[in-house]
Design a binder for these strands. Structure first.
Lengths: 159, 159
DNA sequence: AGAAAAATCGCCCGAAAGTATGAATGGAAA
DNA sequence: TTTCCATTCATACTTTCGGGCGATTTTTCT
């Protein structure tokens, strides 16, 4: 795996694309040598290439420029409650070492969503949700999601 | 509903790009007609086009796919009775037809107990607990125990 | 550039939860 | 008395959870 210079992932991807593009060009040249069609249908040929590489470029850009998705859970209160408004205990969250993503999962968990639904909402896989929830249970020292929700509410980690 | 508003703008943009691409193709054809260079340097020509349109594609994609940072807002509604903070809503319980025993199960459920633990506490069998909880889910119109607990608390069926 | 933390995903497997269906019992109401 | 219903339990089956691995990738910090 290690060979002198270790390429970063992004660099490797770019290299891969360059190689594939080069081989594509090679293929085109081969086609050009074997089919006279392109000689008198040059404009179609060029058009095809243009479209092909435009699509390639789009695909490349979409691949490389990964949109940064920020998931934020905002609790919208629809109640008029003048009594004590429970503040979320940030210190406790930090103390327990609960990460951002884990908190996301915890919130959706408390809303009664299944792991699969949580995965859908957060655009991550079911396995990832399971990993997060397992870590939550460890950090909260509980065994089940119902206990986790109960404790999290009790500690004001969530609303 | 978010994208519906922007559709017309986006469509105009796409149209613009199509037009510019078409004119670019036209330009290329004109060049091809006026410079013999391309006839025997066809591979360079094609390579240039490939690169050009790859860049175009990348640029196009970058232009069109602009939401780099997407903030997803998940709203969670919290209802709280305007009356006293923790007044158990007997009317609601009656209206939903939740029986005494089901309420017992529901309470233990909200404490985070498993079905087996509930069975132990109430001195009934696991199957009975399952029956009760299934009935609870039916009456509360939910699918999971976490949802049941959430809804029951929201409706003040339990504390 | 390199280490550490966080986030992502996968597989396997057993446990728990939930569904469907049927049935016995005992108390309360018609 | 008969009917209704809450409660109890069972069996069989499907789905979901959760633990226990390991792994890669991304982000963050130094």
């Amino acid at each position: 795996m290690k060979f002198g210079v270790q390429l970063s992932t992004k660099r490797k991807e770019i290299l891969l694309y360059c190689i594939s593009m080069a081989s594509l060009l090679f293929l085109l040249k081969w086609l050009e040598a074997h089919f006279i069609v392109f000689n008198y249908r040059l404009d179609f040929f060029i058009g095809a290439i243009a479209i092909l590489f435009t699509v390639l470029g789009i695909w490349l850009a979409l691949k490389l420029v990964k949109p940064k998705v920020e998931t934020r859970i905002i609790e919208k209160e629809v109640y008029i409650d003048n009594s004590a408004q429970t503040e979320i205990n940030q210190q406790e969250i930090a103390k327990l070492g609960i990460s951002r993503r884990e908190l996301d999962v915890l919130n959706l968990m408390s809303a009664g969503l299944s792991n699969e639904e949580i995965a859908g909402k957060l655009f991550i896989s079911l396995n990832t949700v399971k990993t997060h929830s397992s870590n939550i249970f460890l950090k909260l020292d509980v065994k089940r999601r119902t206990q986790a929700v109960e404790k999290a509410k009790r500690l004001n980690l969530i609303r």
